[in-house]
Design a protein around this nucleic acid. Sequence first.
RNA 1: GCGCCUGUAGCUCAGGGGAUAGAGCAACGGAUUCCUAAUCCGUGUGCCGCAGGUUCGAUUCCUGCCAGGCGCACCA
Length: 569
Amino acid sequence: MQKLKEEIAQLIAPLVALEPVEVIELLEIPPEAEYGDIAFPCYTLAKKNKQSPPVIAKDLGDKLAGREGVYWQKAVPRGPYLNFHIAPASYNLEILQNIIEQGQTYGNTNLGNGQNVTIDYSSPNIAKPFGVGHIRSTVIGHSLYLLYKALGYNSIGINHLGDWGTQFGKLIVAYKHWGEEERLEEDPVDYLYRLYVQFHQQAEEDPSLDDEARSWFRSLENGDAEAVAYWERFRQLSLETYASIYGFLGIEFEYYHGESHYNQMLDRVINLAQKKGIARESEGALIIDLEAYDLPPVMLRKKDGATLYITRDLAAAIYRYETFEFSRSLYVVGAEQTLHFQQLFKVLELLGFKWASNCVHVPFGMIRFKEGRMSTRAGKIILLEEVLQRAVEMAREIIEVKNPDLKDKEGAAIAVGLGAVRFGDLSNDRVKNIEFDWEKALDFSGETAAYIQYAHARICSIIRKAGSQYLIWDDRAISLLLKEEEITLVKTLALLPEKIFSSAESYRPSVLARYLIDVAREFNRFYHNCPVLNSEPELQHGRLLLINATRQVIANGLGLLGIAAPEEM
RNA sequence: GCGCCUGUAGCUCAGGGGAUAGAGCAACGGAUUCCUAAUCCGUGUGCCGCAGGUUCGAUUCCUGCCAGGCGCACCA
């Protein structure tokens, strides 16, 4: 597609007195395929030339009448646009050859040139269960991690575990009051969660519990042996549970640097803020006023001497820059923390760090119940493990009906089940809230991962039956791919690189997810109209090359979403 | 009260300064002597929240309003 655009730009630029780069900027894809494949809109020229857009388009059309290029065959004016139609033979050859040659790396670039990008994602709070809410950060963050890698950046995944804070004071209080050793041994995360919920219920009636919790957290920060021992125990037990979930999801992090990791650096942050003269005492606490920037004040230290979330986040940001010299630092954290990140980045700026402008909050909407939001404290939450298990179970049942002879049923069920859950979180714009609905979460038809996976599996099936000739390149076979479905499919496949780029650039895996639906749809249309195995040998060969390229695009794309592409399902 | 986000078909949502605003679901009707029917084809629906503004042109950008969500110093 890029080569086609360049060719057209070179051609038009001298005719309209613009630079080729400017022409490329203007080129767009027409709304209907029948109009053409690349459109040059003439609106911007209208002012300069004092002619109406349709007149300019027609004029350009006349000048190009009868001419053709390497990748285009005709230029037709239509209203205010000059529409170029591709030359399928050379275009198909160019695109398909590219895909086959690049294989697993098709769509990748070296744009990032090895620069570091830190991605803070997943980051669950220890001692709280891993709910479906956390999956959004986990899944979106992981996809961004993979996307940036594909663009040649060195992605550094950081799991900023919530392993510090007043919540530990609460847990210690709850455990000391009501804790039972056997139950903790039995199912630690579940039990700690129950204690956490119980604490909040009791604290409603007895506010002194909150004071007690704050006091225990202060002891923890002061290194009190008993407090540290509890903390250590709770943390370790929780980590073991998370490890199994990440293992099942195939997610790894370069670092598990939780909030506690930065404890030694907090004094430095506070000293720095004081030295810069931006911090001041207020009601016994240490705060930074941000009134001049229309932001509420930031609190670095409470009146009881304990630090806060943002103090540790400041230390973490500084640590990340000093350790990795990132070109970007992403925080995949819910939209409800937008203000927090505005404050964080502003304070970093005030501390004199130029790199503050390279820090990006990548927010996402909440997962809600029909009745309202989920709440860990109130115990209103759906466990991720339950969703995953039910999704896989449902996939199993469908496989039993649709494809009972399948060899690796369990592998396919896991691929489809996990794919459905992941895709549900990736396919829509991340800033929107999601209403949790079991039916939708477990839906395998329509615009879902299963739709894409199914197209992939069908291709693999055809290739298996065909033997290995799809591996042999043949220009002549490609030149036979002239049916509408074939050309449309190739055009769709050509878009992967730009979709990967814009997906990463806008921090929206949904761009890539939607695109893969298009690829699968175009493949399905092809599949129903163009027989592969039952066509003439040479055409069959061409079609095999085409579907192999399609298989590659789907596999690469799903891979970047963290979704498996099974060969059979 | 202030700030941020969202508002598009019955439902869930894409899209986005320009050509006739699109998908999926749901409903109905069709397609399998043939590569997996988890598929494909067909049928209908839209004050693109409301009102102004900028523009040759706004559903898209700006302002105001309305509705919903989220947040706003000792939680994270």
